[in-house]
Computed example of a mutant assay.
Amino acid sequence: MSNVFQLHASNPGGFTRMDNDLYGALIRADLSGRELRVALAIHRQTAGYNVSSARIAASYIAEMANIHREDVSRIIGELLRQRVIYREGGSKAPIGISPANEWKIDAKNNRKTTATKEPQCGVSTTSLVAFPPHNKDTNTSTTSDEVVVDAKRQPGAVPEKVSRTKQDACPHRAIVDLYHEILNELPGVALINATRIQHLQSRWREHQAHRDLAFWREFFETVKASDFLMGKVEGRFNTKPFRATFDWLIAPRNFVKVVEGNYNA
C-alpha cells in the first residue's frame, strides 16, 4: 500500500510549501534538534501564510514545538545569532527565515578524527584479549562540594578538584555590561554589590535557560521594547512615569513579570 498522496489545492488539511534550496539547507544544517524544531515552527507560521515574516509569540512556538517557553526564547536568540532567522527590529518585532547563504551556524558535531589510543591495561602475550585496569588504580570518589577529576593514585599525586560552585558561577559583570549596552537610557550600575550579586546568582541558577547570556540579551531587549518599563508612559493622574532600574529588574517577582510579559501598569 502506497503512503504517497497527491497534494491538491482542495486538500482540507492544507499544506506548506518549502523552497527546495531551503529544504536542503535545513537538512544539512548542523542545528540541534530543538533549534530545528523552532526554525520549522517559524517557517510554518510565515511561509504557511504566504508571508516572509510575522509576529510570533514565543508561547505559541513553545506549544507547536513542545518546548518550554523560556527555552524557546533562548533558542530564538541562538538562531538570530547564527543568522538562521532574522528580526525586523526589537524583541517583539516580526521574525522570518533568513536566506541559507547568510547562515553562520556553529559547528557542533564536526569532531576531528583522532588516532585511537591504546588501552591502558595489561595485554597477555598469548592472547589478544585486553584486561581492564584494576579498580584500585582509579579513584572516582566525590564529595558534596567538589568533583575529583582523573584522580590516579600515584606517589605524591594530588587529585585535581573542580568546584561545583565555580561551575555554576554567574557572570555578573557580563550581565551588567549587557544591561548598559541595551538599556543605556535607564539608570546605570556603578557598583556590583553583595545584594546584586546574590540576586543575579539566584536568577542564573533558578532555571537552566537563564544560564545563557543570549537569554539575558533577549530579557533586556524585552525591557527596551516596553514603553512602560522605559518610563515613556505617564502614570495615573499625571504622576511621574515609572522607569525600571537594574535592581527592580533582577528582583524575584519583577523578573518573573518581565519574562512572562505581565509588567504593564
Rank of each mutant, 00 (worst) to 15 (best):
D137A: 13
V123I: 07
Q120W: 10
T138S: 08
F131W: 04
A107R: 11
T125M: 10
E146T: 00
K117N: 10
R111H: 14
D145L: 00
E146A: 03
K112P: 06
T138P: 03
C121T: 08
S124V: 03
V129A: 07
K108M: 09
K152P: 05
V149H: 02
E146D: 06
V148L: 09
N135K: 02
K117L: 15
E118Y: 05
T142E: 08
S98G: 02
V148G: 01
E118A: 05
T114S: 15
T143G: 09
D106Q: 15
D137C: 12
K117M: 10
K152F: 15
T116Q: 13
R111K: 13
T142S: 03
T125H: 06
T143P: 03
N101W: 07
T126H: 08
S141I: 02
K136A: 15
T138F: 10
T114M: 11
E118M: 10
A100K: 11
A107W: 00
S98C: 05
S141Y: 00
K108F: 07
P132F: 05
V149I: 15
T113E: 04
N101K: 14
W103V: 08
P132N: 07
C121E: 04
S141R: 00
K152T: 15
T114L: 13
S127N: 06
N101M: 08
H134T: 15
D106F: 01
W103N: 07
T138R: 10
K117G: 14
R111A: 15
S124P: 01
S144R: 11
F131Y: 12
K117I: 10
T114A: 11
H134E: 14
E146K: 01
K136N: 08
T143D: 09
F131R: 14
S98A: 15
T126A: 12
Q120A: 12
N139D: 15
V123P: 01
E118W: 01
S144D: 14
P119D: 13
T125C: 03
T142A: 07
